[in-house]
């Protein structure tokens, strides 16, 4: 489904005349239906990898080969911007820890909006949106409220609902559980398990290794990759060669 090869990214800050290195020589492959977990200490470049896949960041080296349903295999590093927009609306979802939302949209509207982007309209969008919110355990009383006032766990579940309602083929999860208590984490984990059962391909970053247990098919360790360990010594190598 997606193959990252020799990905490199640094940030050149012009007024400091300085480059901040973020990642270098990153490579992994995720097949359809698999869940790859990314681990590494803070600052090791985990988010940078996901944001490079989503084109929020422009990588400077390497390629990201993605098998798109609409366009066939294409390199996300160089893909046309309009194709990237299409893929974001239809194939690739991104869930961050932060809820970047419009201040005056109700939870229900936000999920509906995600559906409109995929051309589901009116009644149908409304019905699917409600189903999805229920599915992720957001109490009905909250549907018409502004998420600004939601608890951390509710925000995350709404965030996931928004991404998942589009049934993305590939879902990128950037520490969606970072700020949650155990009960909320458990609900998020349940949600992710359901997605996995439905065959969604996922790449996820989680601080909490215990949380990932039994969820990930393989783990990619940022630091070991940066040390350029030979491919067969990498923790995921056995799965790739099988």
């Amino acid at each position: 489904m997606i193959k990252v090869e020799n990905l490199g990214k640094s940030f050149y800050i012009h007024h400091l005349k300085r480059s901040i290195p973020a990642v270098r020589g990153i490579g992994f492959e995720v097949r359809a239906g698999e869940f790859l977990g990314i681990v590494g200490k803070s600052g090791s470049g985990k988010s940078t990898v996901l944001k490079s896949i989503y084109r929020t960041y422009l990588p400077e080296a390497g390629q990201i080969l993605y098998d798109s349903a609409a366009f066939g295999t294409l390199d996300l590093v160089r893909a046309d911007m309009r194709k990237m927009i299409y893929l974001r609306k239809n194939e690739i979802g991104y869930v961050s820890q932060f809820l970047n939302i419009l201040p005056r949209r109700s939870a229900l509207e936000l999920v509906e909006k995600a559906l409109w982007e995929m051309n589901a309209e009116g009644e149908e969008a409304n019905r699917i949106a409600k189903e999805t919110l229920r599915h992720f355990g957001l109490p009905e009383a909250l549907w018409d409220n502004y998420p600004l006032n939601f608890s951390g766990g509710e925000k995350v579940r709404l965030n996931i609902a928004r991404a998942v309602v589009k049934r993305p083929r590939l879902l990128l999860l950037d520490e969606p559980t970072a700020s949650l208590d155990d009960a909320s984490k458990y609900k998020v984990r349940e949600a992710i398990e359901k997605l996995k059962q439905n065959g969604t391909t996922m790449i996820g970053i989680f601080h909490d290794l215990v949380f990932m247990e039994g969820l990930c098919d393989r783990i990619y360790d940022m630091e070991r990759a940066e040390e350029s360990v030979p491919p067969d010594a990498q923790p995921f190598a056995h799965a790739r060669s099988s």
């Binding site: 084109r55 929020t56 960041y57 911007m81």
Partner: peptide
């Protein structure tokens, strides 16, 4: 410079765009 909006805002390339965003 032109790009996807979140890319322009989070990974601006041109010195002037960086100034504007930061």
């Amino acid at each position: 410079e032109e790009g996807l909006t979140d890319q322009i805002l989070e990974d601006p390339q041109h010195p002037y765009t960086q100034q504007l965003v930061y």
